[in-house]
Nucleic acid binder design. Sequence first.
DNA 1: TATGAATGAGGCTTCATTCAT
DNA 2: AATGAATGAAGCCTCATTCAT
Lengths: 223, 223, 223, 223
Amino acid sequence: MPSPHAPLPEAAAPAGRRRLTPQVRMAQILDAALAEFSERGYAATTMDDIARRSGLSKGGLYAHFASKDAIFEAMLHRALAPPEWQESPAPPVHADTRTFARWLVDRLYAGLLHRPDAVVTLRLLAAERGRVKELLDLWERNVVLPNVAMLGDLLRAHVAHHGLPDGVLVREPWLVVSLVTHVLLTQMILGREPAVGLEHMRESHVALMCELLDPRARLAQAK
Amino acid sequence: MPSPHAPLPEAAAPAGRRRLTPQVRMAQILDAALAEFSERGYAATTMDDIARRSGLSKGGLYAHFASKDAIFEAMLHRALAPPEWQESPAPPVHADTRTFARWLVDRLYAGLLHRPDAVVTLRLLAAERGRVKELLDLWERNVVLPNVAMLGDLLRAHVAHHGLPDGVLVREPWLVVSLVTHVLLTQMILGREPAVGLEHMRESHVALMCELLDPRARLAQAK
Amino acid sequence: MPSPHAPLPEAAAPAGRRRLTPQVRMAQILDAALAEFSERGYAATTMDDIARRSGLSKGGLYAHFASKDAIFEAMLHRALAPPEWQESPAPPVHADTRTFARWLVDRLYAGLLHRPDAVVTLRLLAAERGRVKELLDLWERNVVLPNVAMLGDLLRAHVAHHGLPDGVLVREPWLVVSLVTHVLLTQMILGREPAVGLEHMRESHVALMCELLDPRARLAQAK
Amino acid sequence: MPSPHAPLPEAAAPAGRRRLTPQVRMAQILDAALAEFSERGYAATTMDDIARRSGLSKGGLYAHFASKDAIFEAMLHRALAPPEWQESPAPPVHADTRTFARWLVDRLYAGLLHRPDAVVTLRLLAAERGRVKELLDLWERNVVLPNVAMLGDLLRAHVAHHGLPDGVLVREPWLVVSLVTHVLLTQMILGREPAVGLEHMRESHVALMCELLDPRARLAQAK
DNA sequence: TATGAATGAGGCTTCATTCAT
DNA sequence: AATGAATGAAGCCTCATTCAT
């Protein structure tokens, strides 16, 4: 496929123009749309931008989507689809607290911070909030709340199994999520990881969770 | 939304050509700009929107600002100016931990969550990040980092005064900020307070800080 | 005014969306541009004027030219392209002086005064001089100077062949050009031919050249 | 008077604001107008340009002229006013031909080429021809034609006095004007003197006139 | 399906002119 | 007389969308 920027020598056009299946084309378009929308926002992104990045002409987009808005919506629908949790191994609820905390933190980082699309999508959601109200509600109901609930179940199970003292963290599992949102916000706004480094932050988060879940161990250690 | 910068009731603007001092006009324009930009984003906001809301004709804006971009930048400059910390009373470093924690949390909530402009501005920063890179760096250096540093000083002072055990929170004061960013993100993206309510969240935050700062009290209480 | 570049009768443009090849469209646009620019000047000509005259919508122009300025420049480039001298018959250098002089004057008149575009273009060049400096230099180097040089060659050849006395005209061939610029200026400024009439002026020019080239014949005649 | 570009420190404003007589002010404005209009043309010149150059505010212009067009017209009226010929010394009609020719050429150069305003004004006339039709007619009747007529008188007187042979130049005095228009056109379009230099051209013009007026002298000299 | 010329609405900006001061 | 904020009408240009090919 000739790059859209090349002056395209007429003779170089291959005999058979690439004809892709609609599914592949639409995926290409949505990829391009995510990249472009997240770089410039909805209003500042033109159909030409998307067309160019997906290797199509402007008019060609309309063979697959009815409008710019339709592309945007389809793109977000795909990006906000609930991730597959099933394939993950069983959570080490019965392991020692440090192992358990590290596993939890790793899950959160993997789901939110290590996926480039996640930050990009959140940025778009914040920017175009007015355009996608109902999609946001859907996402909260289907993705956010269930995940927080599951988090609570895991925490309760771990505390019960080890006979750890009660604490806010167990009663308010969203506080765990709260921890990583700092990194998220930094990336959303400053566009880069916090200065201290992701690895350092993860260690701090694990340590914090350990202190909260097992204060006795901390006091014993502090002696 | 009553902007904190505009003491003028908008309803008082009468018809007819009214000449105001540039200072007043510019403040009006920036107020209008903040409101409009944060509703629709930079690209989707028109000069007509801003003009209408500031009670001016479209052309009239150009007597005060050279371009749409100049308005945007001036607006953010004003919004990101370091707030006045001096007027606040002395932090109760020597008070008991709960009082100290509540004071800290209150400060954070007051500075970030209870000001309507703060969320709105953060949303704009996330959306138009590419447009205001250098402003963001400035803001981080002049506002964010100093505040985090001051937070660390306060925490260390409190812990030292009361002979509390060492912990992550003291070593990594940004974790405290981390707590409220969850609310911030929720407001940025969902456009409303978390379902559990701000008051409830504040209590949880205070409790969490107490647990982290004074684990002995928690264990004693848990008996 | 039928442009020499547009073989298309303008009246044939029907309503409805008509797609033409870019070459044809661009020629139409440049024709329209020349007509409009020369009527009102660059600044006072609107894209709507050009669009209307080329049978296109305003936006349509931008499918072919990036800006008003690009149209202007392309139009002048075309207008200032060196004319085709090759097709003309061999200059009658060896004929008698009157025939030779008449041939030279005819060439100048044909090249400068009888082409409606020439005056119009010169007017534009004078008016928008600041906008097209480098184009002017190019034109002088590629068109004006070579033509003056060729003029000198012809004059020298004629004088040598007939054994005529030396004179300023042969040493300074630009004086020949000088003769017709009066008409040019009149047309540029007054917008019409001089009151005495083009035909009369041509006769005067021929006579003047004869007097200068062959003073002996004049004196013989004057007796 | 504070420069319009300076940020004007309020306190620095001198006690008495300069109040000029209307005549002086209007002359200043017309000077500024000529300079600005000739640099950019009518449409591209703004009232602000003129105001700035005449040391006035935009609104101030309207205290003296009713509109932009009124300024333009007044400026041209002043520029096209017939020059004062009376003060010049008597033409050396009875001197030898070379002296007479040089005097004539000098007059033309002084009147047209050595006055910077003349070229500038002609450029404006060519550019804004449509705007000033009737002014142009007036100028032709009152300035151009009388001067050409006077030229004819002088030539006839000189030829008669010296018994020189009849020739086109005497019958068609506009041919003399024709000579200098080449320089005029060059300056109008290329914005600079011809490459060969003004002095050289003047000598050539004088020589040409001598050849035309007195062919016998030329032939005698050529022997 | 795909292309890209074409449309038309609308956005940013300029500027002649007005007018309160 | 003079200032300069303010208006309103264009003007240049962009872009989502349509449609002939």
